Structure formats: C-alpha cells, structure tokens
Computed example of a mutant assay.
Amino acid sequence: MMATFRISTLRRIAPGAAPHVRVSQRRWAQVHGVRFLVTQYSDRILEKYKEKLGKKAKEEGLRDIDQLKEAYKEKIQDVKKAAIPIPTVAASRTTSTTSPLPVAQVSAERTPSSNSGLRTLSSYLDLDKTMDLPEKEIEAIWRLRHVNDAQSLCATIPLSVYQTIEDTAKTHPRFILPLPKEGQGAEIHFLQWTFPAENSVTVLFTHLAEYKLRGEFSQPHTTVTHHLELAKDKGLVLLHGQVVEGRGVSVDEAKWLVMCLQKFYGLGRENNERRRLLELFGKGDASFKIENLVEEAEKII
C-alpha cells in the first residue's frame, strides 16, 4: 500500500536544506508562464553561445548569426520536424484554450557516456560492515556521508516501495514534471530513467527547453542514482543525487522534482490519474495536457 511510502523518508532528502518548495493553490494558478519560460530559457542559452555562434559565422564567411541561422535553416527545420507535439496550458488556468509545446525527439536513450565514471555504493560505504548494521544506523550513516556536500541529495527508500517505482520506470522511462517558480508559474522539466549497471539505476533531470534545443546532447542539471547493493539483504535502496550548481535549479527545487517523481512513479492502483498521465505521455497522445499534470502535482504537498 502507498502508506508505506513514508513522507519522512522523502524529507530526509538534502539534509540541512530548507523545507521543500511549498506551492499554494494561488501560485499554481499562474500556469500561464509555461510557454514564456521555455522561450526565455532558450534565449538565455542562445545568449550564452552568442560569441561562439558569431565566430562560426565569420569562419563560414557570413555577416552575423542571423545569416548563420538562415544558412542552416533546412537542418533546423529537420530537427523541428522530429519533435513530438505535446499540448500545454494556455493563457491561464481559467481558460480552456491550449497551444502546442513540442518536445524534442525522446526515443533515443540517454545514458552516461562511460560507465567507468559511475560511482557504486562501495565508493561511499564499507559494504561488509554496513551489512551488519540495523536500518536506522544505515540511514544515519548515509545522511552523514553527504551532509557536507551542499549540492547533494540523499534518501533511503524501502525496497517494497522502490520496486513499484522501478517497475513503473521500465514501462515509462521518460516523463515531464512541473516546477513552481516564484511569480512565474510552472517551469517544465524533462526526466529520463537509465539502467547503466546491475546495481545502479539513474534518473537524469534536464530543463525541457534545453532538451528541446540540444536533444541527447543536453546536460542534466540533476542526476539521481539509486544504489541497490543493500536491497536484497537489508530491504533498503539508497538514493544519492547531485545538483549541478549554476544550471538554474536550486537544491530545494531539485528535491521537489525528486519528490514529484517518486509520487508519480510510486503510484498505487488507487491513483488512476497519475498512471493515466504517464501512459498518455509515453504514447505521445495529444490528449495529454500539462494543465492536468500541474493539477495532479498540486496534490503532492
């Protein structure tokens, strides 16, 4: 039963951090910012690479970035044609009009470039000694192991709960989640599950705007790894996340996304709406609406 999905477990994420992002009903009513935020973020990325694009234009004998864009117009159109249309909310919650928010092609698997860089649980803990410890001591040691890293997240998840999450992830490895932004409405983030090693399962969180722009070459702002080495003997899965500083997401905001993820993927049979949203998104069904996603996310807190 979902009662075993303990809120206390989720609140152990990012020890020492402020309480997770709390969203009032009123703030969620400002969903009108979704499309604006996507465009705004794309503009920031363009500004970031402005100098390199200008250099590229000169190398090709072009006057400026506008001429460079015109020269590569056909290639840009090809990328856009590969996008999957997903409807989003329109001007506000009070209106029913929708407009398309295309997502870059999400069929390609994004996995870490090299498994050699993947840290196993043994790089954090002495597994032989840990196996002899009770659950509460393992949880305490895991928190202490990451307490000095201001950009990290950590939590322990009961195996029975994690199994539901993983089973759902294998069926629905890609999804999007809303993140509330003060005075700006909801910013949309793309997530993808990967299974790079026998005892490691990861989730990559990326700004949807960046993923649309760069596809499989986009850089995640948060990477969460589930370590399964203790699952069989201790009935625990240890979660560790790393938030990249300077990529537009705070540790508290990343914590909100992880909580949202666990609520959507750890759903029980009683929550038909969350399951329905996962299924519609996975199929690229036009009836998937971000407004419905936001409404469901409101219920998490």
Rank of each mutant, 00 (worst) to 15 (best):
T88E: 10
A82K: 11
I65V: 14
D149L: 06
T120M: 03
K50V: 04
R110E: 05
E109V: 12
S113H: 12
H32Y: 05
S116L: 11
R12Q: 09
V23Q: 04
E70T: 14
Y41V: 07
Q40H: 12
Q40V: 06
E60P: 03
Q105W: 07
V34F: 01
H32P: 02
T130C: 15
R12C: 01
R93L: 13
I13Q: 00
P85R: 13
A57H: 06
Y49N: 09
E109L: 15
L10D: 05
N148V: 08
P102F: 10
P19Y: 11
A18V: 11
V38A: 13
L127W: 04
S114F: 02
V23L: 11
S96C: 06
I76R: 12
A104T: 04
A83Q: 11
D128L: 06
E70H: 14
N115T: 14
T130S: 08
E70R: 11
V34M: 07
T88L: 11
R110M: 08
E70I: 13
K69A: 08
P102H: 14
A104L: 10
A18T: 14
D126V: 09
D78C: 07
I86R: 07
I84Y: 09
P134D: 06
A150C: 09
G54L: 11
A90V: 12
A155C: 14
C154N: 15
K52W: 08
I141L: 13
L62E: 03
L37N: 04
K55S: 12
N115R: 10
R26Y: 08
L10N: 04
S24A: 05
K136M: 03
Y41W: 13
Q77R: 12
K69F: 05
T120V: 04
P87K: 10
S99F: 06
R110G: 00
E74Y: 13
Q67E: 15
A104Q: 10
V103P: 08
R26P: 00
